[in-house]
């Protein structure tokens, strides 16, 4: 049971990713290929985000007000002036890293999502152009047209 729980997430990501990969390679329709590409990329995002999970009891990677500014009043922290870092640190409550989700995968995946969107956008633009030139989005039809010397 524990084995299943431990690995379930990873299996799902593998299955999703393979669905995407299959579509990218096997589908004839260019748009279906792009759908596959998106599934493929999303699976990777799922995988990354899974890395950062910390069991039950861990919360989102946003600190509470007290955790950042200490239990003192906010003016006091400002009052400490230039060298407040040491001073402030002494007053800050201890953070248990186990209670806060790992932020790194989230940061990375924000970037990966943006990259995915960008790629998808460019790919769509290119497929529009292909449709404009060849009047079809089916790979076989396009290849046949190219072979006929229409390329």
């Amino acid at each position: 049971m524990e084995f299943i729980v431990n690995n379930f997430n990873y299996w799902i990501y593998v299955i999703l990713m393979m669905i995407g990969l299959f579509a990218m390679i096997a589908k004839n329709n260019l748009i279906k290929k792009l759908v596959g590409m998106t599934i493929f990329q999303t699976a990777i995002i799922l995988f990354y985000v899974s890395i950062g999970v910390k069991g039950e009891g861990a919360t989102i990677p946003i600190l509470s007000y007290e955790q950042v500014h200490g239990t003192h009043h906010v003016e006091e922290a400002d009052h400490a002036g230039e060298d407040d870092s040491h001073h402030a640190q002494a007053d800050l409550p201890e953070i248990d890293a186990r209670t806060i989700t790992n932020p790194i995968p989230h940061v990375l995946m924000l970037t990966a999502i943006v990259v995915g969107v960008a790629t998808l956008g460019v790919a769509l633009a290119i497929s529009q152009r292909i449709f404009h030139f060849y009047g079809s989005l089916d790979e076989d039809v396009i290849l046949a047209k190219i072979q006929k010397g229409d390329g």
């Binding site: 990713m17 990969l21 990218m24 260019l30 290929k33 590409m37 493929f40 990329q41 990777i44 995988f47 990966a112 790629t119 460019v122 790919a123 290119i126 497929s127 152009r129 292909i130 030139f133 060849y134 396009i142 190219i146 390329g151």
Partner: peptide
């Protein structure tokens, strides 16, 4: 005209490559 279709192939293959790398 031909460049467009080869570019699409490149997008698909390039994305597979980059995604494997990311993984």
């Amino acid at each position: 005209k031909r460049a467009v279709i080869s570019s699409f192939n490149y997008v698909i293959m390039g994305t597979i490559g980059a995604s494997f790398f990311l993984l």
